[in-house]
Design a protein around this nucleic acid. Structure first.
Lengths: 206, 206
DNA sequence: TTCTGTGAATAGGTTCACAGCT
DNA sequence: AGCTGTGAACCTATTCACAGAA
């Protein structure tokens, strides 16, 4: 399959969000121009993004809302659900566990792990924090494709190594460190200080 | 000033992180190749990124660690500190308040606001959650350039409108909605469900 | 010899513009 | 008439490759 840019994938996620909103508003059809306006882009961009995967619209009419939503879910692989394990029961971990946005999109946090004896056994949003030592045995019983790493920086790499050995293929990393993984494992970094720094740059240069 | 791409700015932030790490390790000099390896890019990319702002290295030698760090801090506007206000004292807000990465980079969370009477008055990491009604009067007394919005989706736009009226020029938004702001105000979106969706796409297409 | 700085070449992403359905 | 789908044109970012300083 042709290489699709990350920006295209991110925009598709956005379009999907707008389509879901349009659905709750009872809209049945939507044009590339409307999606573009919502997403802060152009109609040509929307059509191009979609064209990499097929032609889902009707000329003169636009796109059928539920159909396009379903197609985008297919493209993004969201029709299946994902078991997600979360390592690191700090504040960030706690915020992520109860974040509704994950569940809504089919990402189900199945377990939380931590090292800290004081946290192990405590309940987070109905889930009991487990000792990270159980990671391997648990993942052998029930595989996970996706892990969220929200540990301190200095234990992130070691946790990731273990996750990779357990067959985890995608990692959302909140620890502010680069991670080494085999080429078949995908890592996405979320670094909030870095985001603020881009804002700082924008403020300093006007 | 020539328009610099967002990717360049993000990479500079990364380089800065590596330079700080190198400093604690007592390194005095570093090459573009080393920075590239740490940042998962190429030496040419590192040199090009820096070249937009000047020539900070010595041929045959590399870059002086503390000097380059200082230069990048200048470029990013990090030599000054920022007062940051946070609106939304939910789980995410709580995680952000105590996140050390902000303070380390000079982003000082000066106040937290919420609507919910049950949250108002409670302490978060030494800060008392204030009634969001005080936003205007507080910001008139002490201006802020940057705000973090971690409210539910349906109140985000209204909060942003008020922040903008109070002179806030940059917003880090955690609410999963597009925000309308005047052209001189910068908005950065953090959307963790969207990040997971890019991972889902990667998993579905191998 | 080593490593930077930078024009030139290449690759990649976005916008244009229009043919083709409905 | 309205809106999609898409090749071509354009623009931006990355990589190459090499001259030049330490």
């Amino acid at each position: 399959m042709r290489k699709i840019s990350d920006s295209t994938i991110r925009r598709l996620s956005l379009y999907l969000r707008f389509l879901e909103q349009a659905t709750t508003q009872g809209r049945t059809t939507i044009s590339s121009g409307e999606l573009a306006k919502l997403g802060g882009t152009t109609s040509a961009q929307v059509r191009k993004d979609l064209s990499f995967f097929g032609s889902f619209g009707k000329r003169g009419l636009g796109y059928t809302v539920p159909e396009l939503a379903s197609r985008i879910r297919d493209i993004l692989g969201l029709q299946r659900g994902y078991r997600v394990v979360l390592v690191g029961a700090g504040r960030m971990g706690g915020a992520l566990v109860q974040y509704q946005g994950f569940k809504q999109r089919g990402f189900h946090i199945a377990a939380i792990y931590d090292q800290d004896a004081r946290k192990i056994g405590s309940r987070w949003n109905g889930l009991v924090v487990r000792d990270v030592r159980h990671l391997e045995t648990d993942l052998k019983k029930e595989r996970s494709d996706i892990a969220i790493v929200a540990t301190p920086a200095d234990s992130a790499q070691q946790v990731v190594d273990r996750l990779v050995r357990c067959g985890v293929k995608a990692i959302l990393n909140f620890a502010p460190v680069p991670l080494a993984v085999p080429p078949d494992v995908r890592v996405k970094h979320v670094n909030m200080a870095l985001e603020l720094e881009t804002l700082s740059y924008a403020l300093a240069n006007r």
